[in-house]
C-alpha cells in the first residue's frame, strides 16, 4: 500500500515545529520544556539528594531515577491517572537512555530524580521526554559527558519518514522506531521498534533520525545558552 502524501502535509524528512525552554519550574534544581508539534513534555530534576529507602543506596555511585507520566488531560480521551505497564516501561527506557551520559560516580549513596510529565500528547512522547530530561539535567548542573537528543523515525506504507504523528502511527501499515543519540559522540542510547521493516529500510531510517537529532541538538544548545543570555540585557 502506498503512502504518497503525509496527512499533515509535511515532507517525509521534515519534523514538526520544535521549541525548547529551560528553567520553567522554579522550585526544581533543573527543569525544561520541549515541544515538538502538538507533543509537549516538561521535565524536572531534583538532586543529587539523599536516597530513601536506604537499601537502594549504592556506596560506589549515585543513582538516576526517572519517572515518566502522562497527565490525564494530555490525550483526547481521559487517561486514567496512576502507574501503568506502559509508564513503567518508558520510565525504564528513559533512564537507560540517559544513564550513559550522566557522571554519577561522585554522588555516592545519593539519587538524582527526573520527573517527566507529558502535558499534551500527539505521538513521540518518550522522545520528547528524553530530550526534555537531558536539558533539565544540564540545567540542574549535573556533570554530563554529553547531551542526548531523541526523535522517532519509521515507515508508513512504502515511505521512510521522520517524526510520526498520531495519524501516521495508527496507520494500518506503520512501523515506529523511537531513537535517542548522544549529541557529540553519535552513540545510540535508545532504540525500540514496533512493526515490520527490512534491514535496508531500517538503516535508511536510522540515518534520517541521526539528521533529525542533530537539528534537535542545536535547539537544545540554543535553549540553554539563551536562558542565560536573556538575563544579560
Amino acid at each position: 500500500m502506498s503512502y504518497e502524501k503525509r496527512f499533515s502535509g509535511r515532507k517525509f524528512d521534515e519534523m514538526r515545529e520544535i521549541e525548547a525552554k529551560v528553567g520553567i519550574i522554579k522550585r526544581a534544581d533543573g527543569s525544561a520544556l520541549f515541544r515538538i508539534g502538538d507533543t509537549i513534555a516538561i521535565a524536572a530534576v531534583y538532586g543529587p539528594r539523599e536516597l530513601h529507602p536506604r537499601f537502594l543506596q549504592n556506596p560506589e555511585t549515585g543513582i538516576l531515577r526517572c519517572n515518566y507520566d502522562m497527565i490525564s488531560f494530555s490525550v483526547p480521551e481521559r487517561k486514567r491517572p496512576g502507574p501503568s505497564r506502559r509508564q513503567v516501561e518508558i520510565s525504564l527506557v528513559t533512564e537507560k537512555a540517559l544513564l550513559p551520559v550522566v557522571d554519577l560516580k561522585q554522588f555516592q549513596n545519593s539519587v538524582i530524580d527526573v520527573f517527566i510529565q507529558i502535558i499534551q500528547a500527539n505521538s513521540g512522547t518518550r522522545c520528547a521526554g528524553i530530550t526534555a530530561a537531558s536539558l533539565a539535567l544540564a540545567h540542574a548542573g549535573i556533570p554530563m559527558r554529553d547531551m542526548v537528543s531523541s526523535v522517532s523515525v519509521g515507515k508508513v506504507g512504502n515511505k521512510i519518514l521522520i517524526d510520526l504523528d498520531k495519524d501516521e502511527e495508527d496507520h494500518e501499515d506503520a512501523t515506529d522506531i523511537p531513537m535517542a543519540i548522544t549529541n557529540r559522540g553519535k552513540q545510540i542510547t535508545l532504540l525500540q521498534l514496533d512493526g515490520n521493516i527490512t534491514k535496508k529500510d531500517f538503516i535508511e531510517a536510522l540515518k534520517l533520525g541521526m539528521g533529525g537529532c542533530e537539528k534537535i541538538a542545536k535547539v537544545q544548545e540554543k535553549a540553554l545558552k539563551d536562558y542565560y543570555r536573556s538575563k544579560n540585557e
Binding site: V101, A138, P143, M144, R145, D146, M147, T182, N183, R184, Q220, E221, L224, K225, Y228, R229
Partner: peptide, 20 residues
C-alpha cells in the same frame, strides 16, 4: 562564554583540562 555539557572547548594536547 557559556558552554553546555559535551561541548568541545579546545583541540590539541598542550591545553590541560581543569575543573569541570
Amino acid at each position: 562564554e557559556i558552554v553546555i555539557p559535551g561541548q568541545e572547548l579546545a583541540e590539541g594536547l598542550d591545553y590541560l583540562p581543569g575543573q569541570g
